Amino acid sequence: EQYVVVANYQKQESSEISLSVGQVVDIIEKNESGWWFVSTAEEQGWVPATCLEGQ
């Protein structure tokens, strides 16, 4: 499942990744806490779901 990044995010923990507007990410896991585990071409990590929008 692919989502587009709609807000920049700077990682704050080692388990997170930074996002840039316009990036496309694959969703691996959706957590009810509002944090999703995603994959980019370069890395995987947790990001806030509020930064993502379905395609």
Rank of each mutant, 00 (worst) to 15 (best):
V4R: 15
V38A: 11
I27F: 09
L19Y: 02
F37R: 15
V21D: 02
Y9C: 02
T50I: 08
P48T: 01
F37T: 03
N31A: 10
E13L: 08
A49R: 09
F37V: 09
I27N: 01
G22F: 01
F37M: 11
V25E: 01
N8G: 14
E53W: 03
I28W: 07
Q55Y: 06
A7Y: 14
E29P: 00
S20H: 13
V6E: 04
E53I: 05
V47Y: 04
F37H: 11
C51M: 01
Q12G: 09
C51T: 07
Q2N: 15
Y9E: 02
Q12N: 08
Q10P: 06
N8I: 03
T40Q: 15
V21S: 06
S33H: 12
E32L: 06
V5W: 00
N31I: 04
I28K: 13
W35A: 08
A7I: 05
S15M: 08
Q55E: 05
L52V: 12
V21F: 05
G22Q: 03
F37S: 10
Q23G: 06
S39N: 13
S39I: 05
E16L: 01
A49P: 10
E13K: 13
Q12F: 13
A7L: 10
W36Q: 02
E53T: 13
V21N: 05
Q44W: 03
L52R: 01
E32R: 10
A41G: 10
G54I: 15
V38G: 04
I28T: 10
F37A: 08
V6I: 15
S15Y: 11
V5F: 01
D26E: 10
V4D: 09
T50H: 05
E32G: 13
Q12A: 09
Q55D: 13
S18I: 03
W46Y: 12
V5M: 04
P48C: 02
K11V: 04
C51W: 02
C51G: 02
V47P: 00
Q23K: 08
S18T: 03
S39D: 10
Q44A: 08
V25M: 01
V4K: 15
W46A: 02
Y3A: 15
A7P: 01
L19A: 03
V6K: 15
E43D: 15
I28D: 04
S20C: 07
V5C: 10
G45I: 02
G22L: 00
Q55I: 10
V25D: 01
S33E: 13
S33L: 06
A41I: 14
E43G: 14
E53M: 09
Y3K: 12
Y3G: 14
V47C: 13
N8L: 04
G22V: 00
C51I: 14
V38M: 01
E13D: 10
V4Y: 14
K30P: 03
E53S: 12
Y3E: 10
E43F: 06
Y9N: 02
G22N: 05
N31T: 08
S39Q: 12
N31V: 08
E32V: 14
K11W: 03
V47D: 00
Y9D: 03
S33A: 10
E13H: 08
C51A: 10
V5S: 10
W46S: 02
K30C: 04
G22R: 03
Y3W: 05
S39G: 10
Q44G: 08
E13C: 07
N31F: 06
A7H: 04
V4G: 06
P48N: 03
V5Q: 00
N8T: 14
Y3R: 09
L52I: 14
V24I: 13
V21G: 03
Q12T: 13
I27H: 01
E29Y: 03
G54Q: 15
V24R: 09
G54M: 10
E42L: 10
P48L: 03
V4I: 15
V4M: 03
S14E: 15
S15N: 11
S33Q: 15
L19M: 03
G45A: 02
G34W: 02
S15K: 14
K11R: 15
E53V: 09
I17P: 01
W35T: 07
Q10V: 10
G34Q: 03
G45R: 02
E43A: 12
E53D: 11
G54H: 04
N8H: 10
I27L: 10
G54E: 15
S15L: 06
E53A: 13
V24P: 09
I17N: 02
N31Y: 06
S14Y: 11
I27D: 00
K11A: 10
I27M: 08
Q44L: 05
V47Q: 00
S14T: 12
E53K: 13
Q2F: 08
F37Y: 15
S15W: 12
Y9V: 06
Q44N: 06
W46I: 05
W35H: 14
E43L: 06
E16K: 08
G54C: 12
G45D: 00
S15V: 10
W36L: 07
S15A: 13
V6N: 07
V24M: 09
V24N: 13
N8K: 11
T40G: 07
S33R: 12
L52P: 01
E16P: 02
T50M: 06
V25L: 04
V47A: 10
A7D: 12
S33T: 11
V38T: 01
E16I: 02
E16S: 08
E16H: 08
W46R: 08
D26G: 09
V21C: 13
S14C: 13
T50Q: 08
V21E: 15
G54W: 09
T40V: 12
W35M: 14
V5L: 00
S18E: 02
E1G: 05
E42Q: 14
G54L: 15
G34S: 07
V24Y: 06
V47K: 00
V5R: 00
W46F: 12
V21M: 11
K11E: 08
V24H: 06
G45H: 01
I27W: 03
Q23M: 12
Q44M: 09
V47W: 00
Y3S: 14
P48G: 00
L19N: 00
V6L: 07
G45N: 00
W36H: 04
S18R: 02
S15C: 11
V4Q: 13
E43V: 10
A49Q: 05
G45W: 00
L52W: 01
V47H: 00
E53C: 09
N31R: 13
S33I: 04
S15I: 07
V4N: 09
E29A: 12
G34T: 04
W36I: 09
Q2C: 11
Y9M: 03
Q55W: 05
I27A: 14
A7T: 14
G22T: 02
S33C: 06
T40A: 09
V5T: 05
E53L: 07
A49H: 15
V47N: 00
E29M: 04
Q55N: 03
N8F: 06
F37N: 15
Q23T: 11
K30I: 06
D26C: 06
E13R: 08
S33V: 07
V5N: 00
Q55P: 14
Y3Q: 08
Q2K: 11
Q10T: 12
W35I: 07
S15G: 11
F37D: 04
Q23S: 11
N31C: 14
E42D: 15
Q55K: 15
G54D: 09
S20F: 11
W35R: 14
E16V: 00
Q2E: 05
E43T: 13
S39F: 06
S14L: 14
V24K: 15
W35L: 11
V21Y: 04
A49I: 15
G34L: 04
Q10I: 09
T50D: 10
Y9Q: 02
K30T: 13
S20R: 11
I28M: 09
E16A: 05
A41R: 14
Q10A: 13
W46H: 01
Q2A: 06
Q44P: 01
D26Y: 06
S20Q: 09
E32A: 14
S15P: 10
V25R: 00
S39C: 13
